[in-house]
């Protein structure tokens, strides 16, 4: 591992002041960078693999951002709350999509370490990105090509991608968050701002060398999740039963009144270069009479323009079926 200095900060302003580059947004970290470390389960992993080599680490895991509260129907979560602590919180246990996106992710030990700020900012698991001996990676080295196109791409994305980069955003939580219209509160040298989670990440077909839109010195301080007056659920399909990333997943938040879909919001995981909000499927469903045929039509519409390579050929169909099944389970409409 490249040498680095380590400091710990105990207030947000000091954390923000320590970071003077756009390191959080960039796909790579170099010796000129001062980078944040929270739970470290992405940060330290990528440093040990030699993908990242920041010159300094600022530990933000002990910032006083550990509260979980409900204000006027909005769940407000400090950025350093762990995945495990959030999943255990009384207000989260009743929101199936949020609870299950946490409990079906990683392992119990990783969930005790990983913070929710770090979770939404985690980096792609693309094995070629994570292996610095691979020379073709437009995310690490713009213009070098993409080794995944002709390589093993089973876990790669089919939406929000093109032949330049097919990296998936692997967070389960973030998929639930986009379906819940959640927001992040950011704090930086220029003050504070609030951003929908759906606008936090950068699509690979827009710019693979950037992962998110955070400015220099900006950090996530809180997550705001409007608690839904609807039923919800998270379905994760993967190669083994536990401790595995999604091949596909679907987060569905729905309210059916007199047979009509009065509220519908959908996030898809394992398929997008960003946590994918399925706006096309929602447009088919919203305000319509719920039926299995309509669910099929909506899911087909969402996957219509999927970009596949040989390794991801199976994904649009698997994603379509995952979404249809989850729409059935959440609405309990089966015909």
């Amino acid at each position: 591992m490249h040498p680095f200095t380590y400091t710990r900060v105990d207030d947000v302003a000091a954390a923000s002041a320590a970071v003077t580059t756009d390191v959080v947004a960039r796909a790579v970290q170099t010796p000129d960078d001062v980078a944040f470390i929270a739970g470290g389960t992405t940060q330290l992993d990528l440093m040990r693999d030699g993908v990242w080599s920041p010159g300094s680490l600022v530990d933000i895991s002990r910032l006083p951002l550990t509260d979980v509260q409900v204000h006027d129907g909005v769940l407000v979560v400090g950025a350093t709350v762990t995945m495990a602590a959030l999943a255990r919180h009384a207000a989260v246990r009743d929101v199936a999509v949020l609870r299950d996106s946490l409990l079906l992710a990683a392992s119990p030990q990783l969930r005790e370490m990983a913070t929710i700020g770090g979770n939404v900012l985690q980096r792609t698991r693309c094995r070629y990105f994570r292996d610095p001996t691979v020379t073709q990676c437009n995310k690490r080295e713009p213009g070098s090509g993409c080794a995944a196109i002709e390589g093993t791409a089973r876990t790669h994305a089919v939406l929000g991608v093109d032949a330049g980069c097919i990296a998936v955003h692997a967070s389960d939580l973030a998929v639930a968050l986009v379906a819940l219209d959640a927001r992040v509160r950011l704090s930086g040298p220029g003050g504070t701002r609030t951003l929908p989670v759906a606008e936090l990440h950068v699509r690979a077909d827009q710019d693979p060398s950037r992962d998110n839109v955070l400015a220099a010195g900006e950090l996530i301080t809180h997550l705001e999740v409007p608690l839904p007056e609807a039923r919800s659920g998270y379905l994760k399909v993967r190669d083994r039963a536990s401790y595995e990333f999604a091949l596909t997943s679907a987060a569905v938040v729905a309210r059916v009144e007199d047979g009509v879909l009065e509220h519908i919001a959908i996030g898809l995981g394992g398929v997008g270069s960003v946590p994918w909000r399925a706006t096309r499927a929602e447009a088919v469903l919203r305000g319509q009479r719920a039926s299995l045929a309509l669910f099929e039509e909506a899911a087909t519409a969402e996957l219509a323009d999927a970009f596949t390579v040989p390794g991801t050929d199976f994904k649009p169909e698997l994603a379509r079926r995952t979404l249809v099944r989850q729409l059935r389970d959440v609405t309990e409409v089966t015909a």
């Binding site: 380590y6 470390i37 470290g40 389960t41 330290l44 530990d59 030990q109 370490m113």
Partner: peptide, 18 residues
């Protein structure tokens, strides 16, 4: 796996400094 303040964590992905 070890316990840090009573919670189970992975010591390989934890910096000693943390």
């Amino acid at each position: 796996t070890v316990h840090l303040d009573g919670r189970r964590v992975l010591s390989c992905l934890t910096l000693a400094a943390q």
